[in-house]
Write a protein that binds this DNA or RNA. Structure first.
Lengths: 141, 141
DNA sequence: TCTATTGTAACTATATTCGTTACAGATGGC
DNA sequence: GCCATCTGTAACGAATATAGTTACAATAGA
């Protein structure tokens, strides 16, 4: 269980919220759709709230709602809110500094990493939550 | 120790081979530069050999060499040779099929995954092993 | 035949992710 | 004020992936 599925769960959760604007949605209900534990959802919503994408209320009749219109939330923002890692990892242990390749390879790879990340951000910026919600609606139920 | 650093180690290893063309390079020597165990390198070289990027010889005076010129090997090929996973994972458990969002979200996310992957391939296709080797040489030793 | 080297299986250590339980804190209704 | 209903979060467990390590068979040259 190593692959990080937080982005997938986040998009799923936010799509659910997009279908219930101006309503406090409970983590139990979201968890049922995502097929996971409510705590997993609440942890996720904590990150999304920190990023300003959702607003939560505690207490009775509490829950979570979108902080903005779905067409003002890009997938890139969601990705940044939950993504922790890079596409590929650098060396687990520092390479030999006595070797010219070992000494400089990490800087080169780091630059490539950043270029890839930029590309991912551009791709994801091309979609809003509204787009996703519409694509879901077009699914052949 | 979860992040996959095979791509980094592969580029490192192949850069070493690029600096010693037409010579059987031993896994021990490569491992010393990457700062890992020779078996890790041999496993990696096995994948790269399977992808047609290197040629290995067993026995005394054996070792590994590049199968092609460094300017004919793109980073995209290396990435494809060693990369196993996607940028983000889909749901760990299948979402609820009783929910319209749960039923269709995976297909939508899968499409986005493919689009991102295409972007990564394009970025990495812009670099050859020769480019990397030259960038390393420009490092401030 | 001896030596050097790859190929590979098997196992361990460590890290990550997700799932789960438990409970404190907040909020609204009575 | 009290209770029911939520979120927030800590703590722990289970499953899994990665890399590191040991061991040894297979191969090839001297």
């Amino acid at each position: 269980m190593a692959a990080n599925s937080q982005f997938a769960m986040a998009v799923h959760t936010l799509s659910m919220l997009a279908g219930r604007r101006d309503e406090n949605v409970k983590s139990d209900w979201l968890a049922a759709s995502v097929n996971t534990n409510p705590v997993v959802i609440r942890r996720l919503l904590g990150q999304l709230g920190h990023a300003g994408l959702v607003i939560s209320q505690t207490g009775a009749h509490g829950g979570t709602r979108l902080a903005r219109c779905p067409n003002e939330i890009s997938l890139c923002e969601i990705y940044k809110a939950v993504s922790c890692g890079e596409v590929f990892a650098l060396h687990p242990k520092e390479p030999s500094q006595d070797c010219p390749v070992g000494k400089n390879i990490e800087a080169v790879l780091c630059g490539i990493q950043k270029e890839i990340d930029k590309g991912i951000h551009e791709t994801l910026s091309g979609y809003t939550l509204q787009n996703v919600f519409e694509l879901i609606g077009q699914g052949k139920n």
